[in-house]
Nucleic acid binder design. Sequence first.
DNA 1: CATAAATAGGATAAAATTATCCGAAATAAG
DNA 2: CTTATTTCGGATAATTTTATCCTATTTATG
Lengths: 144, 144
Amino acid sequence: MFSKACEYGIKACIFIAINSYEDRRVSPKEIAEEINSPQAFTAKILQALVRNNVIKSVKGAYGGFEVSKNEIQYIKLSQIVKAIDGDNIYNGCGLGLEKCNEDHPCPVHDKFKGVRDELKHMLENTSLEELALNIKSGTSFLKT
Amino acid sequence: MFSKACEYGIKACIFIAINSYEDRRVSPKEIAEEINSPQAFTAKILQALVRNNVIKSVKGAYGGFEVSKNEIQYIKLSQIVKAIDGDNIYNGCGLGLEKCNEDHPCPVHDKFKGVRDELKHMLENTSLEELALNIKSGTSFLKT
DNA sequence: CATAAATAGGATAAAATTATCCGAAATAAG
DNA sequence: CTTATTTCGGATAATTTTATCCTATTTATG
């Protein structure tokens, strides 16, 4: 469904959010350990998230990655996915047709509509906040 | 969402079905032209579909690929997808956790459930027949 | 039986994704 | 100002996916 990069990105954001609540910045090393991902690759993904203004980075000593405490509730999964995988998950045709729309639909166009709309709705209505809170409370897990 | 291989596989099955209704076998060359896919790669995918008993092949002169006319209505999208992409689309965790279930869910486990159930339901309830009929009637398209 | 027409399948190549490494640039603190 | 720390970003490698090529095998037909 998502690329590996996107999976890492989502998990990384959650871990960063948890730490930002405690005013702690985290490094790619810590993140990679916590979400069980390759460190250098994770760092690249973090860069993309920074460039797309999903998270912030502070260079130098005592630096690291963080996200504004009061923005966490407004950051949606869709922003993270879009920053990493782009928006083909929204716009792309299920069967890869260049031009696929109501007037010229691929064979699964209508069938797919429901699934994609549900996915889109989920991504746009799931906040980083709720995901982070569930991790904090031990209701869900970032690895194994 | 699906791999390229799977996209080609679905479109190929539809084209084969349409021709099987007319008792015509088709070659990878014809198929590739009709669904706008690389021929040799498409041939590989057809082999996988044959191995998984989704379609049938007949070697030698006047051979080609076909699907039993009276089976077309019972062949579901799910069979095609499973034959090519395997069943990780059903069982895999949305964030790639090795072990992700109700007792040990990933952060998006519940959120994802709806989307995946909808996808699964769609795949299991969409028959090759209806897809083929829509192509025949010009209601949907296999390329461009 | 010989021949032509097809699929099967192995070997290989190209492209995309995933992953690693290292030096440059920035920054906090002494 | 210097140093230690940390992200940034380019180069490169490994893996997976996508794609191509060529030969073997099968089979209908004359």
